[in-house]
Design a protein around this nucleic acid. Sequence first.
DNA 1: CGCTACGTTGAGAACAATCAACCCCGGTGG
DNA 2: CCACCGGGGTTGATTGTTCTCAACGTAGCG
Lengths: 249, 249
Amino acid sequence: MLSSVAVIGPPRAAAMPAKRLQDCEICPARGFNICGAMRREDLDHVAAAKSPLRLAAGRTLVSEGEPATHFFNVTEGALKTYKLMPDGRRQVTGFLFAGDLLGLACDDTYTFSSEALTDASLCAFPRRQFERLLETFPRMERQLLTMASNELAAAQDQMVLLGRKSAPEKVASFLLMLAGRQERLGRPRDRLRLAMTRSDIADYLGLTTETVSRNMTILRHRGCIELEASGMVRLSDRDLLEELAEGAE
Amino acid sequence: MLSSVAVIGPPRAAAMPAKRLQDCEICPARGFNICGAMRREDLDHVAAAKSPLRLAAGRTLVSEGEPATHFFNVTEGALKTYKLMPDGRRQVTGFLFAGDLLGLACDDTYTFSSEALTDASLCAFPRRQFERLLETFPRMERQLLTMASNELAAAQDQMVLLGRKSAPEKVASFLLMLAGRQERLGRPRDRLRLAMTRSDIADYLGLTTETVSRNMTILRHRGCIELEASGMVRLSDRDLLEELAEGAE
DNA sequence: CGCTACGTTGAGAACAATCAACCCCGGTGG
DNA sequence: CCACCGGGGTTGATTGTTCTCAACGTAGCG
């Protein structure tokens, strides 16, 4: 499975802990991801287990139904996860950014597919080794449980969106969600890049591309947002956006 | 918060381990829940931390936004969890049966409300004590992580349902989901009780009661199901139901 | 014996999907 | 250089599924 992606540096087992440790120390996602909970002196154990991974935009990382060989941690870039119905209908279940996990929810096969939206960097942990890591470092397991809990809460928010929000509410909520996540990564709060296509957004919100597009236009005319070049969006009236997201018309 | 529910037996701290152990040994949900991973000789530690709890049908267990004081494990009966929008729209995020967890996904306050559908029994763990339990028994923490992962996978399935399935597909999927869960609890595979109202089902599927009702009728006319007295449903043609659930018309 | 909550069915309205046209942009090849 | 192509995005006209509003049936309960 990993043969289908560009691996930088061969996966030599526990060879160069010093260099690896440095990898982790300069990791742009430290503080957001599972390693954030690790003591500095234990970090080389993590570094030894992981393989760094670069993935070009558009490449598939994992496919639904394939054997779940690895656990991943995004350090840079953006990915989407999605599920397909037999007839091709698609539901995008999430967008992943630096610090996000991938590959937790699975038995022996992945229950979803994942694809890079931009060039991305990840840490790949072979499942077996990752589990040994968790046994050795309870702090890490605890951190993982916390992150899984947060994902569960986010999933329930998404159920509200999918089940009970109107199209305009969905689009407004989506923009605010993205803005919130970017902000948590230290990016500007009122300006964000839409790395995903309208089609990705539509499949995330349970809409069609046309409906997403129309509602973006409406938000633009209302003065909530400005669409700039190459997918940049400026949130000019966040308060109004927040009202729209919860149903005040 | 617990004062609003009927507690059988006062929550005396670590008083009668012998009796408590027996409680756990006869627990109808052992094998399904977090205690299933515990060694028999460690079970009294769990028993000491928990307060058994009985909840009458219709009673509220927790409310969204309230301080999250306890973690719960259902041992008997059925509950629903739901979220409300400011204007009263409701999304039922899940139905809970014996073995299911409640109260995991939260910071300091609950992110959802929960209400009993039938008379129910639960184990209530004060959060602090529960966390100490997890630190002491890594097997239990591991089990919790596994269960959280499974919930996450289920949540993604639900997103597909909410975002991409038609009303008939939603209703068929719902019946099959319930049947599957009953079966896992050792109940008959082709006959089940709908403990929830049409309104609960509608809010779970992102539909209205009318649409649920209409589609139940259609399934009945197609010979998939038979509606019997007091909410009993017989799944007479499971294969057809499975086709309908995935979009074969 | 009515009351109320729940469930079913019908008629019409509304929202989002579908079908279709068009624009823009970047890449490719004549 | 420019014509062509294809993917992504926007906008318009029409269709259709689901919602809304309304009536009625039924079962449980004081």
